[in-house]
Design a protein around this nucleic acid. Structure first.
Length: 330
DNA sequence: AACCAGTCCAACCGCTATTTA
DNA sequence: ATAAATAGCGGTTGGACTGGT
């Protein structure tokens, strides 16, 4: 009965992606758009399973992805959303359109978890407001999956859990308001896009990314500090190295003529054209989806900080957060 | 300079949810 | 109504990198 896992097929390549593969995938998606991942390997000739292609696109090649350091704002947002939603990284990521769920998850596991632990140890349980969320740093439902049974409670009527969710939203709003007001310089009403630290990399467009990748890839070995060519130890790590650490391939961003400041503007496949990217996030970010995080933060914050009761609280939540099993929230 | 332990992150794995035939 | 196929999510891991000794 059970279907065989797609990746069990023989001849399916695993491991790090090469720039060439990235290029193939990007050009395919530019032409056809994301989705129908099943067809991607066959149509592109990639020896990857569809799952791997989708993951590569959403976590790495998709336009508008910001990489590098998380800002304090983002950090606080993640902490509070995690307290509210648990480890539902995709839902949390919907509030941070420039970040992938994988990124947020990694950041949580490597940074924030420890940070909160330390803080809690230091506070002796008193609790900084940051950790004052519903379920604590690890989330009461951590690891829980929608419908995953283990921690599942008896069915709650939808109306009931929505009311409870709304109550939680009020709590979360209050907590977030507190957190955001801690920022001395950042007036909630207009939060400038987080300044990009010198070392961090903003992924303006996938085409640009690929251009940069290929630049490093095609460079004769010995040219750069990280310049092991394809022939050296296979292709592994070239991708990660060049992308994670742009300085390895020379000036990195400087080599890219594409519009860096305009986010995805320079890409032929704009964020607005990307269904996956445009659906939820564009509701918040509007037409400026690729222009940095400001619009997103502004809308979110204006919602969070809006004292006017009311209209559309649940609506926004329903728009932004895919509502799963209600029992996950309690 | 060499070694080692810790950190970080891209990618994989297994599962559930949703869609389709 | 049912089963199969596909998409998506969250947890985990492997390996490169970094900093300390």
């Amino acid at each position: 009965m059970g279907r065989p896992p797609c990746c069990d097929k023989v001849g399916v390549k695993k491991g790090p992606w090469t720039p060439e593969e990235d290029l193939m995938l990007v050009s395919y998606v530019q032409e056809h758009g994301p989705g129908n991942w099943r067809a991607v390997p066959t149509n592109t000739g990639l020896m990857r399973c569809s799952k791997s292609c989708r993951l590569r696109w959403t976590n790495y090649l998709r336009p508008g992805i910001k990489r590098g350091n998380f800002t304090d704002q983002e950090e606080k947002l993640i902490i509070h959303l995690q307290a509210l939603l648990g480890n539902r990284w995709a839902a949390i990521a919907s509030y941070l359109p420039e970040r992938t769920d994988n990124d947020i998850k990694n950041y949580w596991n490597t940074h924030l978890k420890k940070k909160l632990k330390k803080m809690q140890a230091g506070e002796g349980g008193g609790g900084d407001d940051v950790a004052a969320g519903a379920s604590g740093p690890d989330g009461g439902d951590a690891g829980g999956k929608i419908g995953a049974g283990a921690g599942k409670r008896p069915d709650v009527p939808k109306g009931q859990w929505e009311r409870r969710l709304q109550t939680d939203i009020h709590t979360a709003r209050q907590a977030l308001r507190d957190a955001l007001s801690l920022e001395p310089s950042a007036t909630p009403a207009k939060v400038a896009p987080p300044p990009t630290p010198p070392g961090s990399t903003t992924y303006a467009s996938s085409a640009e990314n690929i251009a940069r990748l290929l630049e490093g890839w095609l460079r004769p070995p010995g040219g750069g500090s990280g310049g092991k060519g394809p022939e050296a130890s296979g292709s592994t790590s070239t991708t990660a190295t060049t992308q994670q650490r742009p300085q390895c391939s020379g000036e990195g961003a400087a080599s890219a003529s594409a519009s860096h400041s305009g986010g995805a503007a320079g890409n032929t496949y704009t964020a607005a054209q990307t269904p996956e990217y445009s659906t939820e996030t564009s509701k918040m970010a509007g037409s400026a989806a690729g222009a940095g995080s400001a619009p997103v933060f502004s809308m979110l914050e204006s919602w969070l900080l809006d004292d006017g009761t009311g209209h559309g609280e649940v609506g926004l939540m329903a728009d932004v957060v895919p509502l799963g099993d209600p029992s996950e929230f309690f």
